[in-house]
Amino acid sequence: MAEPMLVIRDLHVKVADTEILKGLSLSIGKGEVHAIMGPNGSGKSTLVNVLAGKPEYVVTSGAITFEGKNVLPMTVDQRAREGIFLAFQYPVELPGVSAWQFMKTALDSIREQRGEEPMDYRVFDKMWRQKIKDVGIDQELVKRSVNEGFSGGEKKRSEMLQMMVLDPKLALMDETDSGLDIDALKSVADVVNKRRGPEKAVLVVTHYQRLLNYIVPDFVHILIDGRIVRSGGAGLALEVEEKGYDWVREAMATA
């Protein structure tokens, strides 16, 4: 087994006094791609938001470590600078903020954490243009304010562009495939596959096996009612696709 990057132990999380995650454990090793599937409302977004440090999610017990460091006391921006990136299910609009400026500021903050100087803006600009090409996003689109008036699919691609620019160690992708046409889906998968490497890890949240045809995961986990109830290889996703979650629930009941 690969050296662990992210370790979650017996995590309990509340939102507005309701317990959503009820003792979730998960370990992601360096270089691995994990997929999480589960019915609506089972807690998938909650999990990735907790990892990113979203304030309204209260961790009542359990532990999260990232590269051996305790994540829980870290603020949202500290976690991001440590190398955790969340591709949002619903990215928000930032009126008047240019994508270029947004990413330059973000990248410089991350570099500062590593004790590096801000990136020369010409160097950044060159890299920026290259990534735009790599992701296959429309040049005109990135000239607008971040996400402003973007279609659902455009927002997802813009998340992928940001991920490429910031090059995190751990990418959390919350339903990046939802609402994408087949070409866009392939290009998202392409971006993720290119990023695969011994120092990187990915956690994709998805409802559809379809994405996993292109991003073949090392592990698949089924999340139901705040717990991971079943884990397996890429084949598990196919089984779920075929038989539905009731099959998992039944299997649990008889177990």
Binding site: A52, K54, D77, L86, L94, M103, S109
Partner: peptide, 9 residues
């Protein structure tokens, strides 16, 4: 949350 998730204070 969105902006800070990118590493910005």
């Amino acid at each position: 949350f969105y902006v800070m998730q990118r590493g910005i204070s």
